[in-house]
Design a protein around this nucleic acid. Structure first.
Lengths: 221, 221
DNA sequence: TCACTAATGTACGAACTAGTACGTTAGCTA
DNA sequence: TAGCTAACGTACTAGTTCGTACATTAGTGA
């Protein structure tokens, strides 16, 4: 998530609006993810920046808008990753597995994003609701899922009555929970869901689960 | 979660340590779940109680310990529900489905619990780690899962290599996500995962998913 | 019924925290 | 090169918030 390189010739004061803005966003992302919205300190964010608190208000307006900007950028990152996904050359089963793995990998590599989303849910998604950028853009992954599902259902490989948004929820829930609930799960069950030695195991488990669901014959009743 | 009845003969000042303590816990549960740990206000909790802030410190010591006590009670509630589960008379498939439904129902009916767990994860489960009660008690559900899995694997119904903790994670992730991420998911995809009209659909989907995973033939490689 | 303690209430303070008024300067452009 | 504005810094404040010192009373046991 770090987007600020170091052109820092120490001692000099260089003016660079884009760099200052990006640096604030970087630090704010860490601070909000670390402590939650109310736990995060504007002064702390400023202190870990090469600029001052004044600039946060200059560029973003306030703590609330800063958090919204942080969310917007974090969601932008996963959208980009989803957009780069190319599964058109794969059969439906391999394509779904590939998509699930992308979500698995992204969530694992961006724990700050997971924490921000958890925090935003505590606040009932008010910031998303108030953001023009995040309004109803949806997700590139959804389009991919729709295409794969249509293809798989047409060929009879997949059960016919599966919805794209539902499948996205199924995949996301497993990937999200693994990161978001790592600490309570670890404390209560003595198992670290992010243990590197178990990574391949859980990654395969997710794919197996989704494929099993999609290819199973549904029992009546 | 409300555990305080009303013996309130108005006007009189009755001393009742247990009632006062329970009332504080009730209100604190709501307030912490509403606003997060740092967003919650001790003064606000006190104001919504028939007693004063002084009593919070008298009975619990401080905000931190109060939150721990809230967590301890919330986890106690789900443990009780799991303990009442009786699936010994069911075949493995029906038993697993019953267990999944119990988790589904409990999480849906206790959104405050879900929020508290999300909050505790933001704080890296420090309160659980510092709690004697919550230390390593585990979960009654795990024992149930172990028994059902053994039975199902023995009879050849279930795939042999499934672990109880993993299966618990799988079931929990879906049920948890549905409640915890309701707001961001709804804002981004325009679908309310807690919509009553879809309840049966998602409840069945969870069972189908778990059973499909347990009964599927695993593809090699 | 007396005395003692658990339980409760009041009033206050020290520290923190989001936000701002006001002043300064780098660097571009005419 | 003069001047203008975007970019930046300092110092401060008003309001909040956790926590506590101190005072009081209900109820119980001797």
């Amino acid at each position: 998530m770090t987007s600020v390189e170091e052109p820092a010739r120490s001692g000099e004061r260089i003016r660079d609006a884009a760099r200052t803005r990006a640096e604030i966003l970087d630090v704010a992302t860490q601070e909000f993810a670390r402590a939650g919205y109310d736990g995060a300190r504007v002064d702390e964010i400023a202190a870990r920046t090469r600029t001052t608190k004044r600039m946060i208000y200059y560029y973003f307006g306030g703590k609330e808008q800063l958090f919204t900007a942080v969310l917007e950028r974090a969601y932008g990152v996963i959208r980009e990753a989803e957009q780069e996904l190319d599964v058109d050359h794969l059969d439906p089963v391999a394509a779904i597995r590939r998509l699930a793995e992308l979500t698995f990998d992204h969530h694992e590599q961006h724990p700050d994003f997971i924490r921000l989303v958890s925090i935003e849910n505590i606040h009932e998604a008010h910031h998303i609701a108030g953001s023009e950028k995040l309004g109803k853009i949806g997700s590139p992954a959804l389009d991919v899922i729709r295409r794969i599902l249509a293809s798989g259902q047409e060929s009879g490989l997949f059960t016919a009555d599966v919805d794209a948004v539902d499948l996205h929820a199924m995949i996301s829930s497993f990937c999200f929970f693994r990161v978001s609930n790592r600490h309570t799960f670890g404390a209560l069950f003595g198992r670290d869901l992010l243990d590197g030695a178990q990574r391949a195991h859980y990654r395969a488990m997710l794919g197996d689960m989704v494929i099993a669901y999609l290819t199973a014959e549904r029992s009546a009743g």
